[in-house]
Computed example of a mutant assay.
Amino acid sequence: MPVTVPASAPASGGAVRPSGRGGTVLSAALAALGPLTWGTTYVTTTELLPPDRPLLLATVRALPAGLILLAVTRRLPRGAWWWKSAVLGLLNFGAFFPLLFLGAYRLPGGVAGTVSAVLPLLVAVLGFFVLHIRPTGRTLLAGAVGVIGVALLVLRGSARVDPLGIGAMLLATALMSLAVLLAKRWGRPEGVPLLALTGWQLTAGGVVLAPLALAVEGLPPALTGRNIAGFAYLGLIGTALAYAMWFRGIERLPAASVAFLGLTNPIVATLAGLLLLDQTLTAWQGGGLALVVASVALGQRGSRRRDSAIPAPPAGPADSHRPARPSAADRAGRS
């Protein structure tokens, strides 16, 4: 039987999720703030930001937020965390953001949303290789239900399929899946605030994006008040705060559980369209919305059950991480 890694004891240390159902529900609610906030990105982009500048948008979304967090926390990586932060920053921001916007520009929102809905399935499959956790039938079923629900929620009959756009979205989703799993495996350095870890990754991704944006798109245009307001919201709320809560959830919840919370993104995007863009909701979309909610609930329940049944592995070398602490069940002498 392969060695498995429960959420309460990441492979190399890191924060431990709170024991008890109340703590788990709170962690899930806070983690969901990330994808819930990301659901407003489309409306923010179309209504407040300059058009046709995906690399500029990605850069301004990542780099200023990262530098602000570095200034506030006054912490820099040490040792292996220089390259770990660079890897996670590239996966989460430096590579993910451009691919995401490329897919968004070449695909209708519905197609892009449906492709990204495979995130829980990718995390479940890749988790076997990265964390040595076997995906359960419940998790795979919930992932399939989520994809169907998102498809019903956001797809239209006239949706066009662009191969390059599909490839970009699939690669972006795969990179995000890998980032979730690596963050779960590596944990967080001892004594380092979560905001500092978030700032390292945002800055690393922004440093990669800034010269790319300048080379491809040139100097940014003159910004209006609406542009500045949109960038401020997207950078501070939709990125710095949202990703800090997302990374907190990765620390404290099973990887598959966090991935299912990502399905709340198209729910918010659809509701934002209803409220702000005068869009309507059909009966099929209502059914899709119900399936997505059911998928998230089923994925949370299945992931927690699977996680609670997995014994903790022996603690490895600290490598500047927190030592893994036993769960409440382990302290009580239960397997």
Rank of each mutant, 00 (worst) to 15 (best):
G205S: 10
L194P: 00
G199A: 11
V111G: 01
G149C: 04
G149S: 07
V192M: 10
A104K: 09
V123A: 04
G206V: 13
L122M: 14
V207K: 08
L91Y: 01
P108L: 03
L164M: 14
P135W: 07
L182W: 14
V115R: 02
A124W: 06
V192Y: 02
T198I: 09
A196C: 10
G205W: 06
G127V: 11
M169N: 05
L141Y: 09
A172E: 13
P98R: 05
F96W: 13
S116D: 09
L182Y: 13
T203W: 11
A196G: 07
L164D: 09
A183R: 12
F128D: 00
G94H: 04
A117W: 05
A151D: 11
G113F: 12
S158V: 10
L119H: 02
Y105E: 15
A86R: 02
T139R: 07
A151K: 11
L102Q: 13
I133V: 15
A151W: 10
T136C: 08
L102A: 14
Q201H: 09
I148W: 05
V125A: 12
E190P: 04
L126N: 03
G167S: 15
G146T: 05
A174V: 12
L126K: 08
A112Y: 09
R188C: 00
S177H: 10
G103R: 02
F129L: 10
L170Q: 03
L202R: 04
S116K: 07
L126A: 14
P163D: 05
V180F: 12
T173E: 06
P193Q: 01
L178D: 00
V115Y: 05
R156S: 14
N92W: 03
H132S: 13
A204Q: 08
A174N: 02
L197M: 08
L100I: 14
A183D: 11
A183N: 15
V154S: 12
T198G: 07
W200A: 00
P163C: 09
L99N: 01
D162P: 12
F97Y: 15
L126V: 09
V145H: 08
I133M: 09
T198M: 09
G127F: 11
L122H: 02
A172F: 12
A183T: 15
L90R: 00
G113R: 07
L194R: 08
A117Q: 06
G110I: 09
V207N: 06
G143D: 04
G167C: 14
Y105W: 13
G187S: 05
L202H: 04
L195P: 05
D162R: 12
T136K: 12
V192A: 00
G199P: 11
P163G: 08
L153N: 01
V118C: 03
G157C: 01
R134D: 01
T203H: 09
A183M: 15
G205E: 05
R134P: 01
